[in-house]
Nucleic acid binder design. Structure first.
Length: 112
RNA sequence: GUUCGGGUUCGGGUGGCCGCUGUCGGGCGCUUACGCCUGGUAGAGGAAAGUCCGGACAUCACAAGGCAGCGUGUCCUGUGAAAGCAGGAGACACCCGGUUUCAAGGCCGGGUGGACGGAUAGUGCCACAGAAAACAAACCGCCCGCAAGGGUAAGGGUGAAAAGGUGGGGUAAGAGCCCACCGCUCCGGAGGCAACAAAGGAGGCAUGGUAAACCCCGCGCGAUGCAAGACAAACAGGGGAAGGGUCGCCUGCCCGUUUAUCCCCGGGUAUUAGUUGCACCCUGCUUCGGCAGGGCAUGGCCUCCCGGCCGUGAGAAAAAUGGUCACCCAGCCCGCGAGGGUGGACAGAAUCUGGCUUACAGAACCCGAACGGCU
RNA sequence: GUCCCCAUCGUCUAGGGGUUAGGACAUAUGAUUCUCAGUCAUAGAACCGCGGUUCGAAUCCGCGUGGGGAUG
């Protein structure tokens, strides 16, 4: 995603599920784009910390989406918001939290 | 050897697997566009930060400006394009020691400090207290006088600061009024590249502080800021405005210039944000993909030196430089020990670049000081 | 990214070198009232930090810190 209005739309109209370190917002794509690739956005606010920390969190979240994002591969707009506490988490903790929140969100058994 | 201070350099390393961005090549989809697969190669910092000073580059129609305005400030040398940085010297202020003097103060030596031109070019300001805060002035006191009035800056107290200091003479009382010593100012100028300044002479002293107050003097300065700008694509036509508008390089005024200006009308044109500027530079060749040569910067190696050889040159755009595993290195903790555990400081390019400032775990080397030990 | 601006009680602000930093709202206490509101009285409470200039700094200068704005 590139546009602020898209982020606002997903966060306002999509469904939301919060974990310890991340918040996942999901919205279905419009009907005419239903089969397309999903669109992704990651939010790391200034409250989390300095640029180095925010860059690291974004890179880790991209890696997590690469590894575990298959259920979201098509048909969605996805916004992942990093919470303040995530600055003190390592990659394993972020990965576990993301999987937990995602499986709860999709009402499925844990996939990872 | 320990501790402290200063400086310079570095600021985790190696490898495997999976990814990301740029770029070059190969293959496939009929060619291109585009997409997919695959290989090579490059991919954050000493501060990338703050944006405090410089420079490059770009635009501001053409052309000559003035006054305001802004910055800067001892001297010399080195370095640099500039800003600046480094070293040395000088004056000043403060501190310590020695010496001289009744004292004040001076002289000598050492240390510390700073944005260090000018306070006899001018203007302003100096609260409270105090009589008085700057072309001086008389509250108390002292002296003369019956008084009115006059003389007096020695003494008092105030204050950050009170108009030379000490001693003596002198006087009605006093006072540089006079004298000695010290200080001050002016002239002078040995010496020094210079800032500065020795000797000598003159003056009874006329000149309080503040310029990071206005200001004066010397030197320097156009503005904007890659979101600059260029191209695609900005263009052509018609009408109107003159007591208006634009420009002279932020702005204001003066003075001057011009119709390149402004407004309206319809036409044409771009937009889920294009390409370029923009990734070391120049020249030549080119099948336009690149190649060759030269230069610059930087790193490594060799050399006594001159120099030589080899390698390297980030370029995103909701914005790449990541994830994970193993081993090693510094540090910390536990343990007599073997060993085990823990664990990376400050911080993330955005047109490029030189400085300054600020943040920072730790390591190596050099210099200096103090203390202790050995010879 | 680039370029600017601001900072004073809890909040909004005055003060632009001078010794007690002023005001309004809010807060606390007391008085008035059967009680509350209102009114009156009293009190507490601040110069973003560190240096420098000055006799003296909230004010002037430098460096930081924290906020805010403009610009396609």
């Amino acid at each position: 995603m590139k546009r602020a209005s898209e982020f606002a739309m997903v966060r306002a109209k999509g469904s939301s599920e919060a974990g310890r370190f991340v918040v996942i917002n999901l919205a279905a794509l419009p009907a005419d784009q239903a089969g397309r690739h999903s669109r992704f956005g990651i939010i790391t606010t200034k409250r989390i910390g300095h640029a180095v920390i925010r860059n690291l969190l974004r890179r880790r979240m991209r890696e997590i989406l690469r590894a575990h994002g298959d259920p979201l591969a098509s048909g969605y707009s996805v916004v992942v918001v990093m919470r303040n506490r995530a600055a003190f988490a390592d990659y394993r903790q972020l990965e576990a939290d993301f999987c937990k929140v995602l499986s709860r969100h999709l009402n499925k058994q844990p996939a990872c």
